[in-house]
Computed example of a mutant assay.
Amino acid sequence: MKQSERIGAKIGYIFSHNHFYIENALESYNLKGPMFAFLLTLSHKDGCSQEGLARYLNLSKATATRAIVALEKEGYAYREKDDDDRRIYRVFISDKGREVIPLINRTLHEWNQILLSEFSEEEEAIFRKLLDKAKDTLIEFDRGSEN
């Protein structure tokens, strides 16, 4: 396989630009790494367990813990022990966290506009469909490797 045919390298290039763009846009809010993804998830899964958040975002428990501790430090989220199982921490978005959700969504929309700016409507629809298909394939792969 030729170097130019390596799909992973192309995906990596897009991912690194995505990361750089979002971190720069959210820099003044001290949202680094996956912190914004946790906030977005909490905006519709408030009170989820730390482990559930990690699983939902397909990140390690250690990464989840670091991100949540950082969100707490910045005042964007807080944790409470579960009433039924004291080993479990539930994570909640704070009012300050809710205030930055529109900015995060706007930033992600701007990034999508940049990424897709040279696509026709048809190409964008095909691209999105192919990305969904690749994601679904990996979800099935993960399920198979769990067994």
Rank of each mutant, 00 (worst) to 15 (best):
residue 25 A to S: 14
residue 16 S to M: 07
residue 121 E to T: 12
residue 63 T to M: 11
residue 24 N to Y: 02
residue 76 Y to K: 04
residue 6 R to C: 15
residue 89 Y to L: 10
residue 123 E to W: 04
residue 72 E to L: 01
residue 32 K to A: 02
residue 99 E to G: 01
residue 142 D to C: 06
residue 46 D to K: 06
residue 66 R to L: 07
residue 105 N to M: 10
residue 129 K to Y: 10
residue 100 V to K: 02
residue 124 E to P: 00
residue 65 T to N: 14
residue 20 F to D: 15
residue 124 E to H: 06
residue 49 S to M: 10
residue 87 R to T: 13
residue 68 I to T: 05
residue 80 E to N: 05
residue 42 L to Q: 00
residue 57 L to Q: 06
residue 60 S to N: 07
residue 46 D to N: 15
residue 61 K to P: 03
residue 29 Y to S: 07
residue 23 E to T: 05
residue 54 A to N: 06
residue 122 E to P: 00
residue 30 N to P: 00
residue 136 D to E: 14
residue 49 S to P: 07
residue 10 K to T: 07
residue 35 M to R: 04
residue 14 I to G: 03
residue 89 Y to E: 08
residue 122 E to C: 03
residue 64 A to Y: 00
residue 50 Q to N: 14
residue 105 N to R: 13
residue 7 I to R: 09
residue 61 K to Q: 13
residue 57 L to V: 08
residue 38 F to Q: 01
residue 101 I to A: 01
residue 107 T to W: 05
residue 100 V to G: 02
residue 132 D to N: 15
residue 32 K to F: 07
residue 73 K to W: 05
residue 111 W to P: 02
residue 75 G to R: 02
residue 63 T to I: 09
residue 5 E to L: 14
residue 129 K to C: 08
residue 95 D to T: 09
residue 32 K to H: 07
residue 104 I to M: 01
residue 140 E to R: 12
residue 81 K to P: 04
residue 43 S to F: 05
residue 131 L to H: 08
residue 72 E to P: 01
residue 38 F to I: 06
residue 137 T to E: 10
residue 102 P to Q: 06
residue 50 Q to M: 15
residue 36 F to A: 09
residue 38 F to G: 00
residue 63 T to Y: 02
residue 125 A to R: 14
residue 11 I to D: 03
residue 73 K to G: 01
residue 7 I to D: 09
residue 126 I to W: 07
residue 53 L to I: 15
residue 27 E to K: 14
residue 120 S to G: 11
residue 126 I to D: 12
residue 33 G to S: 09
residue 136 D to V: 05
residue 125 A to P: 03
residue 46 D to R: 04
residue 23 E to G: 02
residue 139 I to H: 11
residue 124 E to I: 01
residue 106 R to Q: 13
residue 45 K to D: 03
residue 13 Y to V: 04
residue 24 N to M: 07
residue 142 D to A: 10
residue 105 N to C: 10
residue 52 G to Q: 11
residue 63 T to S: 15
residue 49 S to L: 11
residue 32 K to E: 08
residue 116 L to M: 10
residue 6 R to I: 14
residue 94 S to T: 15
residue 46 D to I: 03
residue 11 I to Y: 03
residue 14 I to K: 04
residue 129 K to N: 13
residue 30 N to I: 03
residue 121 E to K: 13
residue 78 Y to W: 09
residue 93 I to V: 10
residue 59 L to M: 15
residue 12 G to A: 15
residue 49 S to E: 11
residue 52 G to Y: 05
